[in-house]
Design a binder for these strands. Sequence first.
DNA 1: GCGTGCCCGTGACATTCGTCATGGGCCGCC
DNA 2: GGCGGCCCATGACGAATGTCACGGGCACGC
Lengths: 201, 201
Amino acid sequence: MIRVLLADDENLIRSALRALLSLEDGIEVVAEAATADEALAMARSSAPDVAVLDLQLPDRDGISLAADLHAQVPGCRTMIVTSHGRPGYLKRALAGGVGGFLPKTVSASVLAQVVRTVHDGGRYVDPELAAEAISAGDSPLTAREADVLELAAEGAPVEEIARRAALTPGTVRNYLSSAASKLGAANRHEAVHVARRHGWI
Amino acid sequence: MIRVLLADDENLIRSALRALLSLEDGIEVVAEAATADEALAMARSSAPDVAVLDLQLPDRDGISLAADLHAQVPGCRTMIVTSHGRPGYLKRALAGGVGGFLPKTVSASVLAQVVRTVHDGGRYVDPELAAEAISAGDSPLTAREADVLELAAEGAPVEEIARRAALTPGTVRNYLSSAASKLGAANRHEAVHVARRHGWI
DNA sequence: GCGTGCCCGTGACATTCGTCATGGGCCGCC
DNA sequence: GGCGGCCCATGACGAATGTCACGGGCACGC
């Protein structure tokens, strides 16, 4: 019997996934969590075999949660389901030891199959997502460029970004400028959109 | 027996909802669609009693789909479920004759209950969402301000916005400026974020 | 009919932003 | 050690943007 933990902030999805997985032979849902912290606590007490995580939880993302689970819950494998299949996330997830990565557009039978695959130590990523990730390639941004661009995402003026990043306004503009040109954007706001679409920030 | 149509682009959610609703007495899922067009076509042929729509479908939003359903499928009531409970959407949905509006964080039993309520001609909106909508109030933006702000959402320069809106660049800047000041934003990009958060664009 | 609010435009000004050149410090690699 | 890449900064220039004042046209309600 594969013991599964579900983490998703949407109650409806969670109970629905539980219903779907419970119909499968050899799969049992032993815990449900709405937040990453909750999931971590539950995983420690119930020691599931596989954790099915939403990419975006209210407190932080599923990738960092997966890393914590690997560190703190021995024998617990992880997989991620998401609504928004950004290529960058997939790459980060795989680097973080996640065993499966699926969009929520897959069918229930695929989901169950992947749970089994991941449980057996295998890996599975959605073919379409994989293709996207390959064609999208790595992020061309340097670490600082990505940082600064992320701070620019809310539309804050350069000066505020500079304060929050502990940088000079001039430096911020240089980074934003170089990020925008790398992304083929006319300005930083368009750059934010491009980077978001690729999952680079 | 209440005949239900499901429209959601995420296969997983759809089959999960089907599983959940099928467990309920007196509810039967008669059709599933992944897009608005598909949903419309299916509704015409299967004439469901209640259509459960995702707010965001790939081709257009659930609110306009609901309007079409009301017009083209007599006797079909509609309700909307969504991941992102923006107040503005709720208001628009209600104005469009939608009978129920729920976040996906609700439990399965609430969902089933609301399906029944809507089927009986009643209305239900999530209390939390309702509170948000009331506190957020109406959009302070005029029609044109909202239009222009929407075009500004992708980070396009003023000149392009002007072309797409068939306006003078100067006028565009005036609208953006007034929109930003109404929204308490320092610039148009921040204004876009604020307006998005409230569901005003 | 008159005020009010929205629509659309112009012109001018100060500020912010994008771009470029340039430089120093740091690290890793050949 | 030299080279390249990243990090951080400065200064300066032109372009884009935000702000303000002002104008006319139009629809609506009192």
